[in-house]
């Protein structure tokens, strides 16, 4: 759309009356056309890169839901058979409030969504953050005194659009990385929980505090995982979701703490 506006702008400048352009004019026009083509290419490249990164986020989410979550459901059903009397512990809030049905449901909602947020990307570029940039672009184009300066305006607008795509790419990479690391932690925790349960059975008296801690940690991670799976890259208004940043930060801190705990 931006590029189309630019082309309209440049066509207005192309009302050259002479039959044949002189060499200098041709060189200038050549440079201007190249600049415009580069702007188109820049936006195209960034859009593809952003789309690819968002596809990877979707893939990571899908992997957790399809292969890790069933393992957890299996182990959670075993945990429920153990009559864990641990309500007096302060750090069990998550465990006590944990609702498997809600967690599974919320994760499964994600899998039903389209693989990428392509539509949202289009909106963020053309309606959301950069909406004002397009208005600026129109003004600048009408003020540009030559085809080359018009092409430069187009290029600078393309760079602004590219920056938005870069932000989406950065956000996607961060979420993707977080999901990947959380999933590794989650799988490890599920495996540990399975070992503890197969060793101790369903009699709560066989469980030491440390064993109970392993079970609680697993449920804890499941709850955190559910929150992370639901982090959108862009929200429904096509904006880079601000609340998601907080959730990513919380997730990263949590991951750090869990890793520290495991390594102790």
């Amino acid at each position: 759309m931006l590029i189309e506006l630019a082309l309209v702008g440049t066509l207005a400048y192309s009302a050259d009356k002479s039959n044949k352009m002189d060499e200098q004019a041709l060189a200038k026009r050549s440079k201007a056309y190249t600049r415009e083509a580069e702007a188109r290419e820049l936006v195209y490249r960034k859009r593809n890169a952003a789309d690819k990164k968002m596809q990877i986020v979707a893939k990571r989410k899908r992997a957790v839901i399809e292969s890790t979550l069933p393992k957890f459901i299996e182990v959670y059903q075993k945990i429920q058979k153990i009559d864990l009397n641990i309500s007096d512990k302060n750090d069990l809030v998550v465990y006590n409030n944990f609702n498997l049905c809600n967690t599974v449901k919320s994760m499964e909602t994600v899998i039903k969504q389209p693989l990428t947020d392509k539509q949202l990307i289009t909106e963020v570029i053309f309606k959301g953050i950069t909406g004002y940039m397009i208005a600026d672009s129109k003004r600048n184009l009408s003020a540009a005194k030559s085809q080359l300066s018009a092409a430069n305006v187009v290029y600078s607008q393309a760079q602004s659009v590219a920056e938005v795509y870069d932000a989406i790419i950065g956000r996607s990479e961060r979420i993707s990385n977080l999901i990947m690391r959380m999933n590794a932690l989650f799988l490890g925790s599920i495996s540990e929980t399975e070992k503890v349960i197969s060793k101790n059975g369903t009699d709560v008296r066989a469980y030491t505090e440390h064993d109970k801690g392993i079970l609680m940690t697993c449920v804890n991670i499941a709850a955190a995982m559910s929150d992370i799976i639901n982090i959108p890259v862009l929200d429904e208004n096509g904006e880079l979701c601000r609340s998601a940043v907080e959730m990513i930060q919380t997730g990263e801190i949590y991951l750090e703490q869990m890793n520290e705990m495991i390594n102790q």
Binding site: I56, K59, R60, E66, S67, M180, R181, N183, A184
Partner: peptide, 22 residues
């Protein structure tokens, strides 16, 4: 491979993610 990334996180000396996330 479904791109869950477990191997990449646990064994970064052996595995890496490709362009498709696998």
């Amino acid at each position: 491979c479904n791109g869950c990334g477990m191997c990449v996180v646990k064994c970064p000396n052996y595995f890496e993610s490709n362009d498709d996330g696998n």
